[in-house]
Design a protein around this nucleic acid. Structure first.
Lengths: 238, 238
DNA sequence: CGTAGGCTTGAGAGGAATCAAGTGCGGTGG
DNA sequence: CCACCGCACTTGATTCCTCTCAAGCCTACG
């Protein structure tokens, strides 16, 4: 049993500026609280949901780190994203009332369970919530456009640089260091996300280290030369 | 001046089963009609909207064919999708109240303009519409997952086969042939979408032709061996 | 203290990019 | 109506980036 019926108020959550309640006033906030029926703990390597599971709820990540992945019939799989605290997960399930990807915790995690029919009901009444739900979905679409650009037109070094900059930027928005962080995922998972093999990811990281751009110790990464990393994406030759 | 104030009812539109009104009953249909403020013609090569344009409306494609593309600072660009009649375009603009990609007509086209604030207002009242808007956005997210799988883990032949099968399937849903169709886009645009060069697209198509899977004459494509095309995606070796 | 999983590094192969001609269709203008 | 021109496309030769296969290391964990 990994569900718990602990009541926690969005209004007192330190993620409220990043998460579901973002942009809502105090009055509406109280009504959002009612949506978060319960919280659920997910242990490392466990799935929050899998492909084919009936869709009932969206999940707001309260702590921990997830990956989402899709699989094709022939066993190939592709990591479609890494999600961290304050981000909403499960949007893929809305179309067909069942999930079309797996969400796997990369470390022990806790999520707020938000039954979707309640979100819909409340967003019919609270315009700010309706707007916010639309924005969350649109943001995901735009994010994926960026991934398509990365996968479709960038070389290995550019992909990895873009990935690391994106990661550190999102972590920084959550109060972490601008330059130092711990990778929650393996080289293989990074590779899957970036359309590269784990060897290429490893080699590219080693190159960044010998170039003096990064300092890497296992999963610990320190960005020594942020400008150099940004230059990797927009090659000086262009 | 490429805007026209022609009033056309969704209720009498032959795309109503595929488009915005899908799944709505007769009563709600009438209310949707009110949303489609006007229609707009877009000539071949013209843009419906560009990156940075203020976002005001979603567009339902009534006729014609579009591509959407994103550009990075250094001039690279990536085709993020091809859209045909009945599909909704412009969802990228919701997050930041401005568009983050370009929509370009690949042939003379006509779209129904649906002011987004009106969609929001009506979907607060009509639950079926609310549900449908959510589904449209979720469908786009899931579609992009599929593209990420394609770009991240497939080889050139697999990508092209998946692309052609997807195209013919969508065309078939609109009453066109299951086996024969006209490509509305250039080899270069296909290549951009699939993360390949135009030469590789051309070579791969030639190979499919010499394998007896396709019959190609310029933009005209006939799928001779649909099963063979499907086998390209799931290689027998797996 | 042993082991397994994650990671690094090397060597070689291969698939797609790049560079380079050349073809042919469609549109334009004489 | 026909000739010319440009753009899209095809095809070939070569390069190169990344994958694949392989070996060994390190570290965390039991």
């Amino acid at each position: 049993m990994n569900s718990q019926h602990i009541k926690v108020a969005c209004s007192s959550c330190n993620l409220r500026e990043l998460c579901m309640p973002a942009g809502l006033d105090a009055g509406d906030l109280a009504r959002i609280d009612a949506i978060v029926a319960r919280r659920r703990k997910v242990k490392r390597r466990e799935t929050l949901f899998r492909t084919g599971d009936p869709f009932t709820s969206l999940f707001a990540i309260r702590s921990g780190f997830f990956k989402t992945r899709v699989a094709s019939e022939d066993g190939r799989d592709q990591v479609t994203g890494f999600q961290m605290a304050g981000e909403i997960i499960g949007l893929d399930g809305i179309v067909n009332d069942q999930h079309s990807c797996d969400a796997v915790a990369l470390e022990d995690a806790e999520v707020c369970v938000m039954p979707f029919h309640q979100i819909e009901a409340l967003s019919r009444e609270v315009q700010a919530l309706q707007r916010h739900v639309h924005q969350i979905m649109s943001r995901e679409i735009v994010r994926e456009h960026g991934v398509m650009l990365l996968l479709g037109s960038m070389r290995a070094e550019e992909r990895l640089a873009a990935f690391l900059l994106n990661l550190v930027q999102r972590l920084h928005a959550r109060g972490f260091s601008q330059s130092e962080f711990i990778l929650r995922m393996t080289r293989e998972e990074i590779g899957s996300y970036l359309g590269l093999t784990l060897e290429t990811v490893s080699r590219t990281m080693s190159k960044f280290m010998s170039d003096g751009i990064l300092d890497i110790d296992q999963r610990r990464v320190r960005i020594v030369d942020p400008e150099g990393l940004r230059r990797m994406i927009n090659p000086p030759g262009c």
